[in-house]
């Protein structure tokens, strides 16, 4: 097998691998929403409610506070 053939096979198997990863991601997205761990759709509001003083949809400071709480 010369180098070109090897490259071809490498490309093929990498593709299969990445396809599996991508499908895994789809499953992950839907499953985590179903379980109520994440709510992706509310993130769409970030574009609509984007005034500087409006409440963040996912607050970065609130979250770090939460973490601190948990770490106590």
């Amino acid at each position: 097998m010369d180098i070109r053939e090897l490259q071809g096979y490498a490309s093929f198997f990498m593709t299969i691998f990445l396809v599996v990863v991508l499908y895994g991601y789809i499953v992950y997205l839907y499953r985590s929403e179903k379980k109520g761990e994440k709510d992706y759709e509310k993130l769409g509001n970030i574009a609509l409610d984007d005034e500087i003083h409006s409440e963040p949809i996912n607050d970065s400071s609130a979250n770090s506070d939460e973490k601190k709480e948990r770490n106590k």
């Binding site: 991508l22 991601y25 789809i26 997205l29 839907y30 929403e33 992706y40 759709e41 993130l43 769409g44 509001n45 574009a47 609509l48 984007d50």
Partner: peptide, 17 residues
């Protein structure tokens, strides 16, 4: 488009995918 129309993106998950 969402901002000008006042409509949130139809499916956020689809946008990630």
């Amino acid at each position: 488009l969402p901002k000008e129309s006042g409509q949130a993106v139809y499916s956020y998950k689809l946008s990630l995918l």
